[in-house]
Write a protein that binds this DNA or RNA. Structure first.
Length: 452
RNA sequence: GACCCUAUGGUCUAGCGGUUAGGACACCUCCCUUUCACGGAGGUAGCCCGGGUUCGAUUCCCGGUAGGGUCGCCA
């Protein structure tokens, strides 16, 4: 039988990065084995659920490219789904739980206790054959020594997580439960429940947790805990996926950057690490840069235009050829798309604001005549392309008896407002002679030139 | 508190009963260069501690310590 795995998040309004990795590992295993990846929404806690919260999960998985073979098609619990084992929302499966509880009750494996129903937990240690961790013997804790039984149906009639999780896995024929290690201690309960229902439990693979950079537990409020934040910051999903693969799993041959197809080919449960991993934002950023540099042009333009729009810069007001030429000078020079508006906003804004410190350093009195001479040289140019601009600038520098740098830096700051950015010659070409000269002229009036 | 998992540079990791302990990110130096980024060449830095087993432990066993997890009428 082909593996059937599932990702079973509860809609809390956000998708934890660790949850995203759990989904990824399940998906990779299904794709590697030709199995089935199922998405099930654990929305038993009605008070906290909303369609929006489910949409966050669906959109997050879609952004990462993790398509599911069975599961909901929309965030509507009563809406359409695909797959034969639905419904895929626990809120729609209540009869199943009721029926199972009645069965347990009638067989004396569960009993009523103050209006709730408790499962008669076995008193002996339970051995978990974990595909990642190995055999784990789970003894009873001191609290469980006193009362090992646990509630499966609340007094208000609502079933509890342990119960529904097991019933759904059972009824959906889940063969491998790949989930966070935080569930390892709960697994004894789940195995006991499977046995009570007379079936063999699925295979378990508990994957290590993702911690903050400082080693503390990554919880909801920590920076970078929400998958959405990566989308908002302008990360590429392929970079996030690649990075997540490397947290807690290793291809064992020193490969870092890998295509998804290659990862699917090589991914398997035995290579999953046993220890928790800290989230290394810098390394993610490095991968992001790697992927950003080799983006196909069309996708690059689309993402760039979107990034500008988010920053309130409407690039559609400019000719398409101009926008593309401007973006071409930026490709490969920045990592996050959220950096782009600050990096290249000068192309789409006439108002240039100089950082006070930079202006103080570069707009010094001795640079004024230099910039004036450069302006004149540019003005005399018939063709204003990068090659001609470079030639004119270098010639002017030679006449002044200095290196090109003495002109490059004031010119760059004058025209872009930044001490760094795209290639100066190419940027001037894109900007055009008229705008370039106007900006130099305006910079010449900067008060810093008069100081000292 | 009890129970469970884990432990290789700052971080992610490879590795092994005998290795100059390998790679990547980050960091430092130099080169390239119009800035930044990229690229190239170097560099700093690691087997948690204590006992065993063994001719020999980073590697196997035990203990400790540290980190993480679980013990809900949350999921």
């Amino acid at each position: 039988m082909k593996p059937r795995v599932r990702f079973a998040p509860s809609p809390t309004g956000y998708l934890h990065i660790g949850g995203a990795r759990t989904a990824l590992f399940n998906w990779l295993y299904a794709r590697h084995t030709g199995g089935t990846f199922i998405l099930r929404i654990e929305d038993t806690d009605a008070a906290r659920n909303s369609q929006e919260a489910v949409d966050v999960i669906l959109n997050g998985l879609r952004w990462l490219g993790l398509d599911w073979d069975e599961g909901p098609l929309t965030g509507d619990a009563t809406g359409a789904s695909k797959g034969e084992r639905g419904p895929y929302f626990q809120s729609q499966r209540k009869e199943n739980y009721q029926r199972r509880v009645v069965a347990l009750l009638s067989r004396g494996l569960a009993y009523e206790h103050e209006g709730a129903v408790k499962f008669k937990m076995q008193r002996e240690p339970v051995t978990i054959h974990d595909l990642v961790v190995g055999d784990v013997v789970r003894k009873l804790t001191d609290r469980e020594e006193v009362d090992p039984d646990f509630v499966i149906l609340r007094s208000d009639g609502q079933p509890v997580f342990h119960l529904v999780n097991v019933i759904d896995d059972l009824e959906m024929d889940i063969t491998h439960v790949i989930r966070g290690e935080d569930h390892l201690s709960n697994t004894a309960k789940h195995i006991a429940l499977f046995q009570a229902f007379g079936v063999k439990p699925p295979h378990y693979a508990h994957i290590p947790l993702i911690l903050n950079g400082d080693g503390s537990k990554m919880s909801k409020r920590d920076k970078g805990a929400s998958l959405t934040s990566y989308l908002d910051d302008g990360f590429l999903p392929e970079a996030v996926v690649n990075y997540l693969c490397l947290l807690g799993w290793s291809p064992k041959d020193n490969r870092e950057k890998m295509s998804l197809a290659e990862t699917i080919e090589r991914f398997d449960l035995p290579q999953i690490l046993r220890h928790n991993a800290r989230f290394d934002y810098e390394k993610l950023l490095w991968l992001q840069g790697e992927y950003a540099r080799e983006l196909a042009d069309d996708r690059f333009y689309e993402l760039a235009v979107h990034a500008f729009a988010k920053a309130g810069i409407d690039t559609n007001k400019f000719p398409l050829a101009y926008v593309k030429a401007a973006l071409d000078t930026c490709k490969g020079k920045f990592k996050l798309f959220s950096e782009l508006p600050a990096y290249a906003g000068f192309y789409f804004r006439d108002e240039i604001i100089y950082n006070a410190d930079d202006a103080k350093k570069v707009f010094v009195p001795e640079n004024k005549p230099r910039l004036e001479k450069l302006r004149d040289a540019f003005a005399a140019l018939n063709t204003f392309d990068a090659a001609s601009i470079e030639l004119a600038l270098k010639e002017t520098a030679k006449q002044l008896g200095g290196k090109p740098g003495v002109l490059i830096h004031p010119c760059r700051l004058a025209v872009t407002g930044n001490p760094n950015g795209p290639s100066l010659y190419h940027l001037l070409e894109v900007l055009g002679k008229e705008k370039s000269l106007a900006r130099i002229e305006r910079a010449l009036g900067n008060s810093q030139f008069a100081v000292n």
